[in-house]
């Protein structure tokens, strides 16, 4: 069984390493401040005992008050998983740092989020629309699109 790690314990561990990074954590997931996303990602990948070397999905949800980005991390070595989240509180031109340099799996998925939800990933090597054509107006997966 892939063990879903307790978010609270990971949250405590992260708070020791990066005091300002963790916004909240509960049993299922850890919510981090997007400013600290890149160092947190590197830490989760390279710390022994965690070793999240495999990123499955990255997606985002529009909750109207904020946009939430969800990462599901898996460690193939230890067979455990973690849900990592971050939020942006602005709707016009939201920006989040990219995790492509840590997990290349995010390459197309971040482009897709930019395309469909309009979140720009800072530092992504090729931030263009993926599925829709250039010149398309709006971001269809936002809840206020239609």
């Amino acid at each position: 069984m892939t063990l879903a790690l307790n978010g609270e314990e990971i949250g405590k561990k992260l708070a020791e390493a990066f005091p300002a990074a963790v916004v909240s954590s509960d049993k299922l997931n850890v919510l981090v401040d997007s400013k600290h996303l890149q160092p947190v990602a590197e830490y989760l990948k390279n710390t022994s005992g965690l070793e999240f070397d495999y990123l499955t999905f990255v997606t985002a949800t529009d909750y109207l008050d904020y946009l939430e980005i969800v990462y599901r991390l898996v460690s193939l070595k230890n067979n455990h998983s973690l849900i990592l989240k971050t939020r942006c509180h602005t709707r016009d031109n939201p920006v989040v740092p990219t995790v492509v340099n840590t997990w290349r799996a995010a390459y197309y998925q971040e482009r897709e989020i930019f395309d469909l939800l309009g979140i720009r990933f800072e530092g992504h090597p090729d931030m263009r629309r993926l599925l829709l054509w250039e010149g398309f107006q709006g971001h269809p997966l936002r809840r206020d699109y239609l």
Binding site: D53, Y54, L55, T56, L76, W103, R104, A105, Y107
Partner: peptide, 13 residues
Amino acid sequence: VGILSKDTAIGIG
């Protein structure tokens, strides 16, 4: 032909 190394395969998910 078209070798995908173990590390790259894990890295790209």
